[in-house]
């Protein structure tokens, strides 16, 4: 998930001389025949770069995504909820690791990828730059953010790059509970006291639009979509997925008795789809640039963990070297 919004930022780089027309055509033929590309296979440098960028952004998003939810582990209102949230946040770490691992098969090291995240050079999904200020935010993240993620990730299970597709299969299988637990939290709140209902509505009001932004800019402005589609890295367009998300989510909100924060939202009998209001793309670009409520805190938290952990990682490496020397002696 968490990557589509960011795939228009790549600059055009000079063509790689190894990308001869013959090789490119043969590669495209393999893609068109629905063959999977494996790590050591020849691939165009643009394909490799696009994958590295998309997959590392995806992995970073899983890791940064642990922070807003991790924020509520120690405050979860019941022991059952605490266990579920811990398991879920732990899954996010796991998914980050699966995807970093898959990215490493493209010949980059995780340390370098993480360094790019920590320096602010690499991007991650903007959704995690919004704060979690009430317990209902945890429900809403599960319901909307994971819901949007699943919608994004299911097509990625058929992505042309084997290791990414395989990682996505595992991620999707494991994440199937994430959205359900979120909706369950919302159900409980909406059946609860007036204050709980207010909490739920407040969370929906804050998270609805950012969730829609997760699918990325409109197809009209997303430059790289065409190439990614041809390479079968991306399989469904941003707008198509966004529409699908709105169509399935609106009835779920109605069931909860919550009101969508969109005056223009209306069901179009003719098309069978919901029409919804204009997304505030200015907010999207601002948050992407670093001007969101939590951008600084998120990066500071990861940097601080990394810096404070340096002596630990060094110690483990030093011990391993000592052991190897002892074994050799």
């Amino acid at each position: 998930m968490y990557t589509q919004g960011l795939d228009q930022k790549q600059k055009k780089s000079a063509a790689d001389p190894a990308d001869t027309p013959g090789r490119l055509a043969a590669f495209q033929a393999r893609i068109d025949a629905d063959e999977k590309i494996e790590p050591k296979d020849w691939m165009p440098s643009g394909y490799r770069k696009t994958l590295i960028r998309q997959m590392s952004q995806h992995a970073h998003s899983e890791i940064v995504g642990m922070l807003p939810e991790g924020n509520w582990i120690t405050r979860a209102p019941t022991l059952r909820r605490k266990a579920i949230l811990l398991a879920k946040v732990q899954d996010e770490a796991g998914h980050g690791l699966y995807i970093y691992g898959a990215t490493e098969t493209l010949g980059v090291s995780r340390d370098n990828l993480v360094a790019d995240l920590l320096s602010g050079k690499a991007k991650y999904s903007s959704i995690f730059n919004y704060p979690t200020i009430s317990w209902a935010d945890i429900g809403t993240i599960g319901w909307l953010v994971d819901g949007a993620a699943i919608m994004n990730q299911i097509p990625l299970c058929r992505c042309s790059y084997g290791p990414y597709a395989r990682a996505m299969v595992r991620v999707c299988k494991e994440e199937s509970f994430h959205q359900r637990q979120g909706y369950e939290i919302m159900l409980e709140l909406c059946r609860g006291t007036d204050e709980q209902k207010r909490m739920a509505q407040g969370a929906l009001d804050r998270w609805w639009w950012p969730s829609l932004m997760m699918f990325g800019p409109s197809d009209k402005t997303s430059e790289h979509s065409a190439q990614s589609m041809a390479w079968k890295i991306k399989r469904i367009s941003n707008d198509e997925l966004r529409q699908k998300f709105v169509d399935v989510t609106v009835p779920q909100a109605e069931y909860l008795g919550l009101k969508m924060p969109d005056e223009d939202l209306v069901f179009d009998q003719k098309t069978g789809h919901y029409r919804f209001g204009e997304i505030d793309w200015e907010e999207f670009w601002e948050v992407l640039k670093g001007n969101g409520k939590c951008n600084r805190e998120r990066l500071e938290a990861r940097n601080s963990a990394h810096d404070k952990g340096r002596w630990v990682r060094e110690a483990a490496s030093a011990y391993a070297e000592k052991q190897a020397a002892r074994d050799a002696a």
Binding site: I63, M66, G70, L86, Q90, S304, K308, G309
Partner: peptide, 27 residues
């Protein structure tokens, strides 16, 4: 649980979360 998101290495965050989860279950 306080280590989640703040560990010295991602794998160790997983381990700490695992322990925390075991303890919640025991509690």
């Amino acid at each position: 649980s306080e280590w989640v998101g703040h560990g010295p290495e991602l794998e160790e965050e997983m381990a700490m979360a695992n322990f925390a989860l075991d303890y919640v279950g025991q509690a």
